[in-house]
Write a protein that binds this DNA or RNA. Structure first.
Lengths: 195, 195
DNA sequence: TCTCTATCTTGACGGTGTCAGGATGTATGA
DNA sequence: TCATACATCCTGACACCGTCAAGATAGAGA
């Protein structure tokens, strides 16, 4: 009790991040408003500045958290996939697409927006971790060249971006199991040939 | 002469479109400002409203023009490509990527922004023309299934999006001829097999 | 020449991000 | 215990933004 309106929020930082993601999920990144997010979290319009500096700081922190969950989505798929190197590449691609379809606004913030500061240390590290996972998966799957890596990344990213943007509707309309099957077939096409 | 500051601009509509593209190319779509564009074109802050209604109207018209040039970039590559069906698919993909790398801000406006009204008639038609070209190229290249179409589109789009965003730097750093060779190799991997 | 209309300007309104300075709790240390 | 220091949050102000209404200007047609 006694929590009707405590002066100190408790965990305002986390609340603001959650409010920001809800806001961009509802209205899109273009309509993002720091004051709107503050209202949603029930604090004054200048409260976010103390935790994030400015609007770019909040979106940067949100994108960094996004990259961590993005990597987790890929690892979750890999964990339940077969042991073959091709299976792991396909599974990782499906995780890539899972995340993009489940959190389209966050995905666009990470890959299609200039508002986060992509040079900031925490965001850079989170994005680097995800990239290193990609390289590991591809090289352990027999990939040798720069083209192998680019092909796998671009295929997963292209499917994820188009699907999360509401294109490729015939595939997006499939039920999950059938959709996974089609996407796995496509992803398997560009798995580097075993030597 | 007598053009020091004519009250009537002459072709303000075209001037505003050019100013808008220059603006988003310099500062990104997120920093787009209608007043800034008006200043760049040398007119008052409310002048754009007469031609485009509001900011979304201007960006919608700009995106529609972008789709026309996007299709033209693909056709230009196809025109100088070999006659084989696979050659035409690869050429179209290279044109897709050409456009994204040459006009990254415009590409993002078209594919990664919710500010244009993607339901508006002119934009919808221009985007539909580009999509129909894709389907034509794929089906004439032996594609039969929904997966064939999605695979070609996603591969070209993934490469284009990543390259235009400054990722895949090892490929972006190559000189044009070498880059084309690498990209063509990647694109050829997903060309549907001849029956 | 006179009027009509498209074009552009001016001025105002509410909303936004950011900054400075003040208010309010919480923790520290005598 | 209590006073001081600090982190946290609020209030108020400023310039900028998009949009609307109303007025000024120029060219076109009668």
């Amino acid at each position: 009790m006694a929590d009707e309106k405590p002066y100190h929020h408790g965990d305002l930082r986390a609340a603001l991040l959650a409010a920001a993601e809800a806001d961009i999920a509802e209205h899109g990144i273009e309509a993002f408003s720091l004051r709107q997010v503050a209202r949603r979290a029930g604090v004054s319009h200048a409260a976010p500045a103390h935790h994030f500096g400015d609007a770019a700081g909040l979106l940067t922190a949100l994108a960094a958290e996004g990259y961590r969950q993005f990597l987790a989505a890929q690892l979750a798929r890999v964990r339940v996939a077969g042991d073959g190197p091709a299976d792991r590449i396909v599974a990782s691609g499906l995780g890539y697409i899972d995340f993009a379809m489940a959190r389209p606004a966050l995905f666009r913030l990470m890959f299609g927006s200039a508002r986060p500061d992509h040079c900031e240390a925490e965001l850079n590290r989170a994005a680097g971790d995800a990239y290193r996972h990609l390289v590991d998966i591809v090289t352990s799957g027999g990939g040798r060249t720069m083209a192998d890596e680019a092909a796998v990344w671009a295929m997963a990213h292209g499917l994820a971006d188009l699907l999360s943007a509401g294109r490729l509707t015939p595939i997006a309309a499939l039920e999950p199991a059938a959709r996974d099957a089609v996407l796995a077939t496509i992803l398997r096409r560009i798995v580097p040939e075993k030597p």
